[in-house]
Design a protein around this nucleic acid. Structure first.
Lengths: 214, 214
DNA sequence: GTGACGATTGGACGATACGTCTAAGCTACG
DNA sequence: CGTAGCTTAGACGTATCGTCCAATCGTCAC
């Protein structure tokens, strides 16, 4: 329907590429719908006519920003995933790094999912999420299975569990403003994922954590 | 910012309450933004002026629908959760029922999350999600812990893992149109959640499931 | 130096959709 | 039969979109 160019129809000059980033907080504050092109123009200092010169519409500006964040996340997570260690260790690091990323890019991350439905039709952000997030997870899972540090029957199911845990935890944090540090939750989550919640009492006797909840 | 009334400012007559449901597919197809009030009027057969008589705007109509779906989900899941059995059994049933619900209410469910960012500002849908979904999960977890069928250290972390797994699986299905039946994935997910992916080879030797994936 | 071309931008424009409002018709109840 | 509230068509006024044009400016080739 619309051309697949992730960013803009015309190549975006570097100077504008920098300034357009200033649009992110505006989108984050108001959402796609309530954001006026004029707001973006004001916030970025780029005149409205120029914005339209480079972007077909505000959705494309948002898509540009989101795919940028997605690339950032891809870079961050793949760096973390590349560090040495067993698959199990790397998985734990991925979980932590992901939560930290959510904490740092809260508004944008929330935007990513809030507008995923809309923006996904312009860019294949859904696919980008897969590459950025699920793919390193799957890799760590496979590696862990091979090096014996993990035990995976169904890679895709396990990846869904891992990602889901992170996503829900992050979203609770972003939407409901739950308990303090996201990074702190990483251990609790990794624990559950690794040990499971099946009946068999695990090696270390039940060291109670924050049993409470919201 | 806007009053918290979940549905409408005026009490909605039953007859209209029925018809307004016809607006759901319209929203689901187009999203909040692209849906015109006139479209809703046409789809529901309720004149525009009447819509405005009962709802302050289309966002409130959407909020009304979403909270309705949420109530439905609450009912469905709490029914399932109420069935007899160990916490572990009920948890597995919850996972399955939830996935089935997603499969059946695909468009609306997707909408629920696509517009959550926006709608959450009108209604406390985020809180509704918590009640509808997380709360029965937590209950099953606690019960399972007490009856010995589960082993939970951190209820809220475990609940996040469970819900996240379901959510991500469901979303993959809805957005990417992954493999066939959602209900089929329920077992794989429950397996991972219960047994964990930690190295210790589980009691029953690794009965390989669908090791493949996307 | 000069002309050409593309980037840049202010401002005007038509279109669309929103949400408001009015007024007329209708129903129901006392 | 009269009042009150529900219902609805249609007319507005407003906001924002996206398009378009014309003026300006910088750069490059000749």
């Amino acid at each position: 329907m619309i051309d697949r160019s992730a960013t803009a129809v015309r190549p975006l000059p570097d100077e504008l590429a920098d300034r357009i980033d200033l649009a992110a907080p505006v989108f984050a504050d108001n959402g796609l719908d309530a954001t006026r092109i004029d707001d973006l123009a004001k916030a970025t200092g780029i005149p409205r006519a120029t914005l339209y010169y480079y972007f077909p519409g505000k959705e494309h500006i948002l898509a540009h920003l989101l795919s940028r964040t997605l690339r950032q996340m891809t870079a961050t997570l793949s760096d973390v995933a590349a560090e040495p260690g067993t698959g199990r260790e790397r998985l734990a690091r991925l979980v932590r790094a992901h939560l930290v990323f959510i904490g740092e890019h809260g508004p944008t991350y929330r935007l990513l999912f809030a507008e995923l439905g809309r923006a996904a039709s312009l860019v294949d952000i859904a696919a980008g999420v897969d590459v950025a997030i699920l793919s390193p997870i799957r890799q760590a899972l496979r590696d862990g299975h091979n090096d014996g540090s993990l035990h995976i029957d169904d890679v895709s199911a396990a990846a869904s569990v891992v990602y889901g845990a992170v996503l829900v935890t992050g979203m609770q944090h972003l939407l409901l403003g739950t308990s303090g540090d996201l990074a702190n939750r990483a251990d609790a989550i990794s624990n559950v994922i690794l040990r499971g919640i099946g009946g068999k009492p695990t090696p270390r006797q039940s060291r109670r954590t924050t049993t409470g909840g919201t």
